[in-house]
């Protein structure tokens, strides 16, 4: 599923909003989330998970092709951690039941 797919599904589930509005909603949400992360912020969506930024220190790396040493600068990288409900949902109640009886 892509962003387009989310917009289509939103249209199907929420008849109150027009196609234009649905596009605006989905685009605005992810642009805003990207912007928060760009500024080093943290995002917490209950039941879904949290996004944040981690600091990576400078390190000595290697160019895999030449084998030469290169300096890798310190940088910030975005990360995501799935929430409890989402993780549980992925593994389904029926799967849990099957595991318990096995």
């Amino acid at each position: 599923m892509t962003k387009r797919g989310i917009i289509e599904e939103l249209l199907a589930r929420h008849q109150k909003f027009s196609r234009r509005q649905s596009e605006t909603i989905v685009n605005a949400m992810f642009e805003e989330m990207a912007s928060v992360l760009a500024h080093g912020g943290r995002i917490e969506i209950r039941g879904f998970g949290s996004f944040g930024v981690k600091q990576r220190g400078a390190r000595q790396g290697r160019n895999p092709r030449t084998g030469g040493m290169v300096e890798v600068e310190a940088k910030r990288v975005p990360f995501f951690r799935a929430g409890k409900e989402l993780r549980a949902g992925l593994n389904g109640a029926e799967q849990d039941a099957a595991a318990r009886s096995a």
Binding site: T2, I6, F17, I25, F48
Partner: peptide, 26 residues
């Protein structure tokens, strides 16, 4: 409702084992 629905849609798709790709985000 709509914000919650967007996350629900992503969750539903992932539950079915699908991949969700949001261009410009991840």
């Amino acid at each position: 409702e709509v914000v919650e629905e967007v996350f629900k849609i992503i969750e539903d798709s992932l539950r079915q084992g699908g991949k969700v790709k949001i261009s410009g985000f991840g």
